[in-house]
Amino acid sequence: MDAPRVREIRSVIARGKRWDVVFAIVGIVCLMIGLLTVAALFVDMAVKGLPRISLEFFTNFPSRRAESAGILSAWVGSTLVMVVTAVTAVPIGAAAGVYLEEYAPRNWMTDVIEINITNLAGVPSIVYGLLALGLFVYQFGLGQSVLAAGLTLALLILPVVIVATREAIRAIPAAMREGSYALGATQWQTVRYHILPYSMPGILTGVIIGLARAIGETAPIITIGALTFIAFLPSPPFQPEPPFLSFEWLFAPFTVMPIQMFNWTSRPEAAFQVNAAAAGFILVLMTLAMNGLAIWLRYRLRRNINW
């Protein structure tokens, strides 16, 4: 190459590299803006809310006076709703995932189911609220109950559980299945004793992510008409006299953490906004902990499994 041509090429390269640097800086800045915004959110809530967090905050009912208001009915309600959601979504989601991976024939029916699941994952959560309002609350007559809310959220997270189950099952090599069949096992025995145990950690990850999403969901639960001011608890599931177990709580009115927070956020008084910050802080910690656990599980799995 002659000298002027070399100089020209070098200046082109230098220009290209300058753009590389500019873009790298823009990239870091964008990443930082995203992370710092969320850090600001977290710190803001912590600074405002932490002074309010005490034992009483967890053991008091909501109140007209901000200082003595607590989240007792909210966290109990959230827990109960989560129990219903988990108990419904986990078996159905896992069963659906197993069916699609292990049993489903390649036909239009299966295609319809698969397309459906993908589309359901993109349906806005408030639409699930409308479904629940029309179906669970009025058609099935469940009212504004823990059961109605739990079932709504179960439908909402079902696609997450199904997709996680399918991914976990797909990661199991065909040789595992063939080994089981070669020993004379039936399809169900293979699923029961091989597929399900091996895919359990993956399914668990999906369930945790789904529940973390469900616990923060506000819109569908507001839509079914959950009350925002609940100063009592549902009757406890365990009773002192026979039959010891009670399912009355399933049909009790309730409130949940995000609704309590919404209620406090919408109040004009600054004192209630402090409560909102405290409730938000606890809510974020809960979802972060659940998601963190799931992500940690997943990354650990990816590293440890090598069939």
Binding site: G34, V38, L41, M45, T265, A277, G292
Partner: peptide, 21 residues
């Protein structure tokens, strides 16, 4: 993983953040 974690923050918390911050 951090991005995935952020995707899981409840939207009501973002609402609080929008209104009050």
């Amino acid at each position: 993983p951090l991005l995935e974690l952020l995707a899981g923050i409840p939207t009501i918390v973002y609402g609080y953040f929008a209104l009050l911050f």
